[in-house]
Amino acid sequence: DHWHVHIDGERIRLDGASEEFIRTLEELIRRGTDARELKEIIKEYLR
């Protein structure tokens, strides 16, 4: 599956992301997590 998110107007691909990770991201977004912080979390995950 190819997922991607838009954060700060930037399109970030989440290739190979699990549904669990996507749900976690959605939860963080709902909580109002800062965009820079979200991008860091995604970069760490994709390593």
Rank of each mutant, 00 (worst) to 15 (best):
D1S: 08
D1E: 12
H2R: 10
H2S: 14
W3R: 15
W3F: 11
W3A: 15
W3C: 05
W3Y: 14
W3K: 15
W3E: 08
H4T: 04
H4F: 07
H4N: 04
H4V: 09
H6L: 12
H6I: 15
H6V: 13
I7Y: 01
I7R: 00
D8P: 02
G9K: 05
G9A: 03
E10D: 08
E10T: 07
E10R: 05
R11D: 15
R11K: 15
I12N: 01
I12E: 01
I12F: 07
R13T: 15
R13V: 13
L14C: 01
L14V: 13
D15F: 10
D15H: 10
G16D: 07
G16H: 10
A17I: 09
A17W: 05
S18V: 06
S18N: 13
S18T: 14
S18W: 04
S18K: 08
E19K: 11
E20W: 07
F21D: 02
F21A: 02
F21R: 00
I22Y: 08
I22L: 10
I22N: 02
I22T: 06
I22S: 02
I22H: 05
R23L: 10
R23S: 10
R23G: 05
R23E: 08
T24P: 00
T24H: 15
T24D: 09
T24C: 09
T24K: 14
L25V: 11
E26P: 00
E26W: 06
E26T: 09
E26K: 12
I29M: 09
I29Q: 04
R30I: 11
R31G: 11
R31D: 08
R31Q: 14
G32L: 03
G32A: 04
G32P: 02
T33L: 09
T33K: 04
D34P: 15
D34G: 12
R36A: 14
R36L: 12
R36P: 08
E37F: 15
E37C: 06
K39H: 13
K39A: 08
K39D: 04
E40S: 09
E40R: 12
E40T: 10
I41V: 10
K43D: 15
K43R: 12
E44M: 05
E44Y: 02
E44C: 10
Y45I: 13
Y45K: 10
Y45C: 04
Y45D: 03
L46K: 04
L46I: 12
L46T: 06
R47M: 12
R47Q: 15
